[in-house]
Amino acid sequence: MSETDLLVLAKQYMADKALIVVVVLLFIGYFLKRTPKVADWMIPWALTLVGIVMACGMLGAFSVVNVVQGILAAGIANLTHQLWKQTTDKRESDQDGN
């Protein structure tokens, strides 16, 4: 999946106002990753909760649709991070040609 495919998916299913939540969640995730007392398994859960709260706040109401927007924003933020990480991080098995 390329960057443009990800952007098309985001625009297709996300409300325009909720797209900023994805960017904010990427920054929050970046800082949580560098916080020593936050375990890695907690970061996606924290981003999901923050995404739900932010989406409901940005879209003006607590509703099922807005909760789904927050979950989608967190999912896109996590997917973006993983795509970046898996593309840029070099593993020994990749370097050996195995």
Rank of each mutant, 00 (worst) to 15 (best):
A77M: 08
L79V: 09
G97F: 02
D40C: 08
Q12I: 04
G57D: 09
M54F: 12
F31I: 09
T48P: 00
D94F: 00
A10V: 14
I43S: 05
P44C: 02
A18R: 00
F31N: 09
L9T: 09
M1S: 05
I52T: 02
V23A: 12
F31L: 13
V8T: 10
G70V: 06
L32G: 10
L26A: 12
L49A: 15
A39L: 10
A61I: 07
K11A: 01
T4A: 06
P36C: 07
G60P: 07
V22E: 11
S93L: 15
A73G: 04
L9Y: 13
V50T: 12
A18Y: 06
L83M: 14
V65K: 05
M14T: 06
D89E: 15
W84T: 11
L47S: 05
L19K: 14
K17C: 04
G51I: 03
V64D: 08
K85A: 15
Q12E: 12
R91L: 15
S63Y: 01
W84S: 08
N98R: 12
W45A: 14
L47W: 00
N78S: 15
G75W: 03
T87I: 06
M58A: 14
A10I: 14
L6T: 10
A46V: 14
N98S: 10
A74W: 05
L6R: 07
L6G: 03
Y13T: 10
F27S: 08
D96L: 15
A15P: 00
G97E: 04
L72G: 05
E92D: 11
W41M: 08
G60F: 06
G70Y: 06
V8I: 15
D96S: 15
A46G: 01
A10P: 01
G29F: 02
A73I: 07
I28H: 07
V67M: 13
F62N: 10
V65M: 03
L9C: 14
Y13K: 12
M58Y: 07
A77V: 10
P36M: 11
L79R: 07
Q86F: 12
V24A: 15
W41F: 13
W84H: 09
F27R: 01
M14F: 02
I43T: 08
L72I: 14
A10M: 14
M58H: 05
I76E: 02
G60V: 08
G57M: 12
W41C: 05
P44R: 02
H81I: 04
G97C: 04
V68M: 13
D5C: 07
G70M: 03
K90D: 12
L25R: 06
D96P: 00
L32F: 13
M1Q: 00
M14N: 01
K90S: 13
C56L: 04
G70I: 02
G60D: 08
A46H: 00
I71T: 09
P44S: 00
G97M: 04
T35W: 11
T80R: 03
V22D: 08
G97L: 01
V38W: 12
H81E: 13
A77F: 02
G29Y: 01
G97T: 10
A55P: 00
G29H: 03
V38G: 08
R34A: 14
I52M: 07
G75K: 00
L25C: 05
D5P: 03
A18K: 01
T4K: 11
